[in-house]
């Protein structure tokens, strides 16, 4: 244990805090998906991590498609056009996966009024099937005789290995906070996260559809009586969660640059932790929880060593559930003030 690493100087402290915030922004965007679905259906969408993971692959694929496989290092400005295309691609693919999940893994169960545990098991199954399908994509391509055409995308024989974006985005330092050089990439991530949060928050609070979502979250039966189409609301909830996960995936790939078929799992658990920390079902809670988790985790790895980073996150989850099971801002999608 090395508290000096964290508290030894203000610079260190600020630097770990800033680094944590950037990661926290990604957690927050993924956490939105958990929080929205939980708010409306009181279900943990366990497979949401896979929604995110497919998004990260979409980003890499888009770069391969538009740029090719040659490894290069670009500045953020140079990568921007492809990055925008990748963002669109990731949001579309993630949203599609989220909608498929809703259609096949949840809707039949919700209709039956099945117990939550059963829905969770269905989601776990779907999560594993999705992750494995990605890990076996070379086999499927092979079976379909597409190996040659898709070689760059499926990585034959290496489908389970790390899959990198050929374009490495070189962050450019803009200014320093403490010892931490804030780069253009960091700034884009933080800004994107805040903009999307505000947009979503406004959508849920101000629009007619947002009111529908809140109504269903509060009381599905009454909402149905008042003419809210709850099936539609559930779909849109999954859709939004998927879109946000796609955006998170793009930001993640900007920062990290590579992914693999099980990349969703750990991030998913952390994003869920963030959602619970902020108060699951609460949009602003997702933001607070995400940022907080990112920061605490970074502090934790400063003190205990980076190999303990995930452990810090899990222990934090347990502590939060014990001390304040309804999270920092409380659980409420329904109760959000209009």
């Amino acid at each position: 244990m090395d508290f000096g690493a964290l508290f030894g100087s203000l610079d260190n402290f600020l630097s770990f805090t800033m680094g944590g915030l950037v990661f926290g922004a990604v957690y927050a965007l993924i956490a939105l998906g958990y929080t929205m679905v939980y708010g409306v259906l009181q279900l943990i969408n366990f497979a949401h991590s896979e929604v995110f993971m497919y998004g990260t692959f979409a980003v890499a694929w888009m770069f391969i498609f538009l740029h090719g496989t040659e490894s290069v290092t670009w500045s953020l400005g140079k990568a921007a056009p492809i990055l925008v295309a990748a963002l669109v691609g990731a949001m579309l693919l993630s949203a599609a996966i989220a909608l498929l999940l809703e259609r096949f893994a949840y809707r039949p169960l919700i209709r039956k009024g099945a117990p939550k545990l059963i829905a969770l098991i269905s989601a776990i199954g779907a999560s594993f099937a999705l992750a494995e399908a990605m890990g076996l994509r070379d086999r499927f391509a092979d079976k379909l005789g597409l190996s040659d055409n898709l070689e760059n995308y499926v990585a034959p024989g290496k489908a389970r290995d790390v899959f990198s974006n050929p374009v490495t985005i070189q962050p450019k330092g803009l200014f320093e906070v403490g010892g931490y050089t804030v780069s253009d990439v960091d700034l884009v991530i933080l800004a994107a996260c805040f903009i999307m949060m505000i947009a979503l928050d406004t959508f849920v609070r101000r629009t007619r559809f947002g009111r529908g979502i809140r109504a269903v979250a509060q009381d599905p039966e009454t909402a149905a009586l008042m003419g809210v189409n709850s099936g539609r609301v559930v779909q849109v909830t999954f859709l939004i969660g998927g879109l946000m996960a796609g955006a998170a995936a793009t930001l993640y790939m900007m920062k990290i640059g590579s992914t693999r078929q099980n990349a969703g799992f750990i991030l998913g658990v952390k994003a869920f932790t963030a959602a619970v920390m902020g108060g699951i079902g609460n949009l602003r809670g997702a933001l607070v929880g995400g940022l907080l988790l990112g920061v605490m985790e970074n502090w934790g790895s400063a003190v205990f060593g980076s190999e303990w980073k995930d452990v810090v996150a899990f222990v934090l989850l347990v502590l939060i559930l014990l001390v304040r099971p309804s999270g920092i801002l409380g659980e409420s999608l329904g109760k959000a003030r209009a």
Binding site: I44, V269, V276, V311, L317, V318, L322
Partner: peptide, 25 residues
């Protein structure tokens, strides 16, 4: 002892975390 008091679906996630903690440890 601490986690069985939390809601059932949270328990699933907490135990998931436990499995990982053991492995990382």
């Amino acid at each position: 002892a601490p986690t069985l008091r939390v809601r059932g679906d949270y328990l699933a996630i907490v135990t998931l975390g436990f499995g990982e903690i053991i492995r990382i440890t």
